[in-house]
Every structure is written in structure tokens, then in C-alpha cells.
């Protein structure tokens, strides 16, 4: 199993993602934004968190045109698994691989703390190892994480089971208080209609070992392993 992590100028969670991959038995390989081809045998591509191109213009707007992104888009369109975390989620939305956009947090503050996520579906390669309704404690760290989309888009991703994670309180209820950034319907993570491209603002790669504060992020990586091994939910 091979997991590639793209480093853009300004990425700062790339090594965490490489480590999280290795911890789960992946051969983690570094990919450079200026590369014009992908290594052979890649199973998963991760677009990591950070501030690619200093967030200039809009988050992800310039990274989306990196040379390697043409390959990432082709990989995704061919059914390859692509996961965008935080800035990676923003880049996937800018690239049109995921619907909607991420804009300034409703309260205008950068938010950096643990949040509780509710797993909305386990019918995706990114959540197959998680029980539907299970709660995960995972950190967020972003200034522009408010998920928005046109009302008909929100309606369709909700109806199609494309909402993967929702911000909730410790009892599992999606309340305004549990929403760290004002995202529509408390949406924290989504998949595309085909289910092979996922974006989420929280950082599962930061919580894969108890020694760093939590291990609830493992479920996402364990899901990828399980999916690639062909083991159903």
C-alpha cells in the first residue's frame, strides 16, 4: 500500500500525514507540487494542511494550479483515493473535485482546539472502519473553515450521504455551540458523489497516537487500509 503526500510551498502538516500513513502500514512517499507525474502503484494521495502560497487570493486558489494537481485531478477522476485535510480540503474545493467552498470562520477568529465529530456514514473508503454515529475527538486549526455551498448543493450532498463528518457536542448533538466556524449544517467533512475524494477541516493525522493527545484520527487511516484490503464494513 502506497500513500503519497503532496508538499506545496506553505504546507506544514505534510510530515504528520506521512507519519500517519507509515503508522498504518503504508509506504509513505513525498510528492512535490512541481512534479509532473505520480509514482507508480499509488493507492492514496493526501493533500495536507498548511497555508499553501500564503493563502494569497483565496485559500487553495493558487495551489490548485500546481503542476502536480493536473495529475491529482486525473488520478481522482480515474477513481483514485484522494484525501484533503484542512488546506487540502480548501484546495480540493478550488479544484472542483469537491462541491462548495471554505470561507472565513463566522466569528473571524482562528480556531485551534479539539472538536467532537460524528461519523455520518461508513459507506465510504474513508470511514468504512468507523461505526455510523460514532464520535471522534480530533483537533481543528483554521481561520477559514466555514463550509458553504448553494442551497441546492447542500440539499443534494445531504440527500446523497456525502456528508461524512459533522461537528457535534459531546452528547453527539449538532448544535450551534459545537460548530467551531459556522459551517452550514455543522459540516466538517464531505466526499464527492463517487465517494473516492474526501475533504475535512479537522486533522485526523495529528491524532494517531495517544502520546500526542489522542488516537481518534486512526479510524480514517484504518478505513483506507480496510478498503484497500477489500474488507467490507
Amino acid at each position: 500500500m502506497k500513500l503519497g503526500v503532496v508538499t506545496f510551498p506553505g504546507s506544514n502538516c505534510d510530515h504528520d500525514a506521512l507519519h500517519a500513513g507509515s503508522v498504518h502500514g503504508f509506504e509513505s512517499v513525498r510528492l512535490w507540487h512541481k512534479d509532473t507525474s505520480l509514482p507508480s502503484g499509488l493507492d492514496v494521495i493526501v493533500l495536507p494542511g498548511g497555508f499553501s502560497y500564503g493563502d494569497y487570493l483565496r485559500t487553495g486558489a493558487i495551489a490548485r494550479f500546481s503542476p502536480l494537481m493536473a495529475e491529482v485531478i486525473a488520478f481522482a477522476n480515474a477513481g483514485g483515493l484522494v484525501m484533503g485535510i484542512c488546506n487540502g480540503f480548501q484546495i480540493l474545493c478550488e479544484a472542483g473535485l469537491l462541491p462548495g467552498a471554505l470561507i472565513r470562520n463566522a466569528h473571524l477568529d482562528f480556531v485551534c482546539r479539539d472538536v467532537t465529530l460524528r461519523t455520518e456514514t461508513n459507506k465510504t473508503p474513508f470511514s468504512i472502519a468507523l461505526a455510523e454515529g460514532s464520535l471522534l475527538r480530533i483537533p481543528v486549526a483554521h481561520g477559514e473553515g466555514r463550509y458553504v455551498a448553494a442551497p441546492d448543493v447542500i440539499e443534494s450532498i445531504e440527500a446523497n450521504g456525502q456528508v461524512l463528518f459533522r461537528y457535534v457536542d459531546v452528547t453527539g448533538a449538532a448544535s450551534e455551540a459545537s460548530n467551531p466556524n459556522g459551517s452550514t449544517n455543522n459540516i466538517a467533512g464531505i466526499v464527492n458523489a463517487a465517494g473516492n475524494v474526501m475533504g475535512m477541516m479537522p486533522h485526523p493525522e495529528r491524532y494517531v497516537e495517544a502520546i500526542v493527545g489522542g488516537a481518534d484520527g486512526r479510524g480514517v487511516f484504518e478505513s483506507l487500509v480496510r478498503h484497500l484490503a477489500g474488507i467490507p464494513a
Binding site: 487570493l57 462548495g100 455551498a149
Partner: peptide, 8 residues
């Protein structure tokens, strides 16, 4: 193409 995002 680049300067604006029609979604937002």
C-alpha cells in the same frame, strides 16, 4: 479561472 471563486 483564478481571481474569483463563483461558489462564494
Amino acid at each position: 479561472k483564478l481571481l474569483t471563486n463563483p461558489v462564494m
